[in-house]
C-alpha cells in the first residue's frame, strides 16, 4: 500500500494541505504526547505519519468532549486508545472519519490529517473520506442481506459490477477477515444467521473490501464472548501487516496484547501516548499510572 495516493489531491486543493496551523499554546498542561513532535519536525519531503491530529477540539453543543488532542499514528501499526468511559475515546475515533457529523450541534477546531490530507477542510469529500477509512463498530451491524451482499456492498457502491471480480474481492476480504472457511459454502445465506463473533468478522471483511487506508475499531470485541474476542485480537495482529489500525478499547489487557502504541485519555484530554510496553510498565504521567494500576476508572 503506497503512502501517497496521487489522486487524493483531487479531493483537496493543494493550498489546503497543512493549512490549519496548530495554535500556539504554551504549557497547556497535561496534553503531552510522548515522542510526538510538532509537525514542523517532519521536514519537507519526509513521510508524515498516516494519521495526525493537532490541537483538536470538539464540542457537543456547549460541552467540550475533546480538548487539544494531538497525536500521531504511524503506518502499519496498531494504536489502542484506552480510558474510562466518557473520556472521549470513541468521540476521538469517530472524529477521524467524521462520523460525528451525524450528531447535530457538533463543532470542531483544530486539525486531523489522514494520509497528509486535512479531514475537516471545507472541501473534503466526506463520502470519499469514509471510503478510505474503514470502521468497525462496537456491536456487529451486518446489513439484513446475504453474507456475500454485505461484503460486496462497498464494492458495488464503487460501481464494481463484474461478477467475477466481485467474487474474487469478496473472497479476498473474507479470507483477510479469517471468515472464509466458515462461510464459503453459504455466501448466499443471511448474514444475521451468523454468530456474534462471525458477524463482527463479517463487518471487518466488509470494511476491508473497499481497501481502506486506516481501519478504525470502536471496542470491536466488547459485545463478544472470550473465544470470539480472542479470534478478533488475532485478526487485528494479522491485519497490522497491511493496515493502519486505531482501536478503542475499555479493556487494558486487550490493549496490551494487540497494540504497538497506546494512548490514554481522560475527560477529553490525551494524557499520554507511547509504546504500549513502556506505557504499561513505565508510565510517564501519574494519572496514567493511577489508571493502569486500577486506582480509578
Amino acid at each position: 500500500m503506497t503512502l501517497e495516493t496521487p489522486s487524493i489531491r483531487t479531493i483537496l486543493p493543494e493550498g489546503r494541505r497543512g493549512e490549519t496551523a496548530p495554535e500556539a499554546r504554551a504549557g497547556a498542561g497535561a496534553t503531552t504526547s510522548a515522542g510526538a513532535a510538532a509537525p514542523a519536525a517532519h521536514a519537507p519531503g519526509a513521510v508524515e505519519p498516516r494519521l495526525v491530529t493537532r490541537d483538536f477540539n470538539l464540542w457537543y453543543g456547549t460541552h467540550q468532549a475533546l480538548k487539544q488532542v494531538s497525536l500521531e499514528v504511524p503506518d502499519h501499526s496498531v494504536t489502542a486508545i484506552i480510558g474510562p468511559s466518557g473520556c472521549g475515546k470513541s468521540t476521538l475515533l469517530r472524529s477521524f472519519n467524521r462520523m460525528n457529523d451525524l450528531i447535530p450541534g457538533v463543532r470542531v477546531r483544530g486539525s486531523v490529517r489522514v494520509s497528509g490530507l486535512e479531514v475537516y477542510a471545507p472541501s473534503t469529500d466526506v463520502v470519499e473520506l469514509r471510503r478510505r477509512i474503514g470502521m468497525v463498530f462496537q456491536r456487529p451491524n451486518p446489513f439484513p442481506k446475504s453474507i456475500f451482499d454485505n461484503v460486496a456492498f462497498g464494492l458495488r457502491l464503487l460501481g464494481l459490477g463484474n461478477r467475477t471480480e466481485l467474487e474474487a474481492r469478496v473472497e479476498d476480504s473474507l479470507r483477510h477477515a479469517a471468515l472464509w472457511d466458515e462461510v464459503r459454502d453459504r455466501l448466499g445465506k443471511s448474514a444475521l444467521a451468523l454468530s456474534g463473533g462471525q458477524q463482527q468478522r463479517l463487518c471487518i471483511a466488509r470494511a476491508l473490501a473497499v481497501e481502506p487506508e486506516v481501519l478504525l475499531m470502536d471496542e470491536p470485541a466488547s459485545a463478544l464472548d472470550p473465544t470470539a474476542t480472542a479470534r478478533i485480537e488475532e485478526l487485528v495482529l494479522d491485519l497490522k501487516e497491511r493496515y493502519t489500525i486505531v482501536m478503542v478499547t475499555h479493556n487494558m489487557q486487550q490493549a496490551a496484547r494487540v497494540s504497538d502504541r497506546t494512548a490514554f485519555m481522560l475527560v477529553g484530554e490525551l494524557i499520554e501516548l507511547g509504546e504500549t510496553r513502556q506505557l504499561f510498565t513505565r508510565p510517564r504521567q501519574k494519572l496514567t499510572e493511577d489508571y493502569i494500576t486500577g486506582r480509578f476508572g
Partner: peptide
Amino acid sequence: TPRTLREAALALGSTRSEAIGVVLDA
C-alpha cells in the same frame, strides 16, 4: 431501524441516499 445500519453504510463510503437505501431495505 437500528442506527448502526446507517452508520455502517456511511462508514463504508455511502452517500446519504445510498445509506437511506440500506435502511429502507431493512
